[in-house]
Structures are given as C-alpha cells and as structure tokens.
C-alpha cells in the first residue's frame, strides 16, 4: 500500500496563467470544497510533494522553471495540467509568446480542462492521480524486487 496515496501532498506552480485556475486550486483546499479532508496539503517544497499541479501555458521564460520543479520532485510523482491553458494553450494558443500546454515541458499524466477549472473537476483529477500514484508505486516496488 502506498503511503503517498493516503495523503498526497501537492505543489502548485503558475506557468503563465491568468490566476483564475490558481485561485480555484487554492479554493479547493479551503473550507468551501475542503480538499484537506483527503489529506491533501499544499507544500512549497518540491521534494515533499507527490502531485504537481501546473496551471497556465508554457513560454520561453518559464519552461526551465517548470522543468526544474519537476526534476526536483521524487518518484513516484504525478503531473496534473489544471485548466485549458495548461492542457493546450487555451484562448492564448496563437499568442506570440505561448509555446503551448505544459506537455511541451514535462510529461503530463492527467489533463483537467476548464476556464477557470472548477474545484469539482480538480477533486476528480486528484482522486484519479492518487490511483496513478498507486500504480507507479507498485511498479517501482516490482522493479526493485527484480533488481
């Protein structure tokens, strides 16, 4: 049984988001929708986090930052692209400084659309992410046994 899936800690980073999705991410963890009853805590340290919530698209300046945070996280980790800008660029997909969704920088496990993303969608995404975390964790254990 994976410990992470009983209480997944999240780290949130805003790529080039308008903030709409960011405040909905925070609202999910506040008493209105109460993500914290699932054990979800918002941490600022990538090394403590299991789930990476990215909002907003990727541009020339922040592609390195997104990759850096992803690299600092420890396996098993899951990436959720929150909001349509993170999935594909959204309304800004043809702007000159937008390279596209977050999958241009890091591998994404779950795409959660919305403009701004609704807290219900985000809770669904986190529940799915926990399932993927379990799978990845089991795969890691198998690999260790094999070696």
């Amino acid at each position: 049984m994976a410990f992470a899936s009983k209480s997944p800690w999240v780290i949130h980073y805003d790529g080039s988001s308008c903030n709409g999705c960011d405040i909905e991410v925070l609202a999910t963890l506040c008493p209105g929708f109460d993500g914290e009853r699932f054990g979800v805590i918002n941490t600022g340290n990538p090394k403590h986090a299991d789930i990476f919530l990215v909002t907003g698209s990727v541009n020339e300046q922040n592609i390195d930052v997104v990759r850096e945070i992803y690299d600092q996280m420890i396996e098993p980790k899951v990436v959720i692209a929150c909001g349509i800008c993170a999935c594909s660029g959204g309304v800004f997909h043809d702007c000159y400084n937008v390279m596209g969704g977050v999958d241009k920088a890091i591998p994404v496990d779950i795409y959660a659309p919305g403009c701004a993303i609704r807290p219900e969608t985000l809770i669904d995404a986190i529940v799915q992410a926990v399932g993927i975390l379990d799978e990845k964790s089991a795969a890691m254990r198998e690999a260790k046994k094999g070696a």
Binding site: G15, S16, G56, N62, D94, C95
Partner: peptide, 14 residues
C-alpha cells in the same frame, strides 16, 4: 518579470 507574458495585446489583429 516576464514569466507570465503571453503577448495577448497582439490578438486584436485576429
């Protein structure tokens, strides 16, 4: 700054 620059003022053309 510049991490959030999307360049949306140019979208008036399209």
């Amino acid at each position: 700054i510049g991490f959030v620059h999307r360049g949306l003022e140019k979208l008036v053309e399209t």
